[in-house]
């Protein structure tokens, strides 16, 4: 396996979607290529940093405003409430 082939397969490797022989061949390449080892670790980091963006909770105001939003949505065009 080359660096390019490994790069193309990082996601499938992480998701355990590669056939065993391809997986082993990728691991063998990574064992001898520091560049690709670092690619694997920094790809994981990139995904992990993205996951930190999910930590923003659904804001309290969504729950507070939701009943009003629903009421505003459920207006039939033929029979406006105003």
């Amino acid at each position: 396996m080359t660096c390019k082939e490994l790069t193309e397969r990082v996601m499938a490797y992480r998701d355990r979607e590669l056939p065993l022989h391809v997986r082993l061949s990728l691991q063998f390449h990574a064992a001898i290529c520091s560049c690709c080892r670092n690619l694997l670790s920094t790809y994981d980091e990139t995904v992990a940093i993205g996951a930190d963006l999910a930590n923003e909770e659904v804001p309290e105001e969504v729950a507070q405003l939701f009943d009003d939003m629903l009421a505003r949505a459920m207006v039939d065009p033929e029979k406006p409430e105003d």
Binding site: T2, K4, S34, C35, S41, I49
Partner: peptide
């Protein structure tokens, strides 16, 4: 031949501090 042209370095450890992590995110 499929080999990477430039080098790829490891990154520094991700910060433990929540604020620093949020900044990075």
């Amino acid at each position: 031949d499929g080999h990477r042209r430039d080098d790829i370095s490891a990154w520094p450890e991700r910060p433990d501090d929540a604020l620093d992590r949020a900044r990075l995110a």
